[in-house]
Design a protein around this nucleic acid. Structure first.
Lengths: 211, 211
DNA sequence: AAAAGATTGTAACATTTGTTACACAAGGAA
DNA sequence: TTCCTTGTGTAACAAATGTTACAATCTTTT
């Protein structure tokens, strides 16, 4: 599909006409399929990705190969992931993976500053930062204040929203990886949640019954 | 002390002359003593505080009265805490408390946008956001990948840096509150760390031996 | 000085989470 | 079909963290 059309459809309620024109001209479309990494983008940090459709999941990883999911970036969320910059510390990294097939608009990071004279761009950039911040705090809430039971349930519900589907095609093993725990623990908790009527378990599939 | 002198001493290596003048003219000095809350500032969000001297500790809290320390904002860190905005969700809040006697420069938040035409200000604002982000990720690392032993030790070492003093005047109870665990757990771990030669325990005091 | 309160040490026990081991079922490959 | 891989269920056990209880010491208040 034409970039102009996509930009207009997705960002016209956010940005003024002139900025929309610049976006159409400068932005480059990128499609990623479910499971594909965005790290090559994130690491080089030459582009800033705006989410057009789909969903991205963002992880924290350490050098032991452990990972922990931070949050999903969803279409309805209002797009954009600005972060990543300057975060590559000694031990840990950020990892971003397409949760479903996803379309992004890539903008050179230099534009982030160039466009700050647009009021709507400023609102967008700071809004994005604040959203990321809010979601990181939610991740901290889960870790600091919730037990495994609650964390698994929250994870599943977030995933339902990102996938726009109450039937999740997922294995216990993937869940345990993304929550940095073990498969047995997840199976045990899921069984309990099923008995409580929260969800229904099938092979490679979980149906969330209560939202 | 005169604001002009303080601004020059603390920010001249960061900002251009014109911005320094504006800061001196518009900024208002605020002193907070150790233990004092900054929440009244954060909640109303009419001012953006730049750190001149001292240190601030920032917590996440939930409605059960539980809290968890996120990070310290230190003088050497290069000042500034921009966050807070828009973060007051349903269940959780941000809490900021002076770790030591602290001096802040308060700037109306409207200036944050107004000054974006200064290149140095843009760098400062985005740098601050990225620093906060980085520290939140460190908090997540602690919670997701480290055990209590390591978390207590990291907490103490961070505190040494914020206080600029290897002798911490603190009780086990305060530590357990700030890490959202129990006093007995902290005492048990501290005893072990003392046996390992990491620190020395005294009443109301902990001396960190290895950094 | 006596009483009350705060801080620390420690034991005993409970709960949560993680690990190991193994059985069984579903689905694809040979 | 049989074989092999993957996913799930579950028991038994281990380790980490949390709780309750109480003694001892130091500090502050009365």
């Amino acid at each position: 599909m034409d970039i102009k059309v996509l930009v207009k459809a997705n960002f016209s309620f956010l940005f003024e006409r002139k900025l929309l024109d610049e976006l159409s001209e400068i932005g480059r479309l990128k499609k990623v399929v479910k499971g594909e990494y965005l790290m090559d983008i994130g690491q080089e940090m030459t582009f800033m990705p705006l989410l057009i459709s789909g969903a991205i999941k963002v992880f924290r990883t350490d050098d032991d190969g452990d990972e922990y999911i931070l949050y999903f970036i969803e279409g309805g969320d209002t797009c954009a992931m600005t972060l990543n910059c300057c975060i590559r510390g000694a031990k840990s990294e950020i990892k971003a993976v397409a949760e479903v097939d996803t379309t992004l608009l890539l903008v050179p990071i230099s534009k982030m500053e160039d466009w700050l004279h647009y009021k709507t761009w400023r609102a967008f950039v700071f809004g994005s930062y604040n959203n990321r911040m809010k979601e990181m705090l939610e991740a901290i809430d889960s870790l600091a204040f919730m037990n495994m039971n609650e964390r698994v349930l929250k994870y599943l519900k977030d995933k339902v929203i990102a996938n726009k589907d109450e039937t999740l095609n997922i294995t216990h093993n993937i869940i345990s990886d993304e929550l940095n725990t073990s498969r047995v623990v997840v199976s045990r908790i899921l069984k309990k949640l099923e008995k409580d009527g929260e969800l229904q378990l099938l092979r490679n599939q979980i149906k969330i019954l209560k939202l």
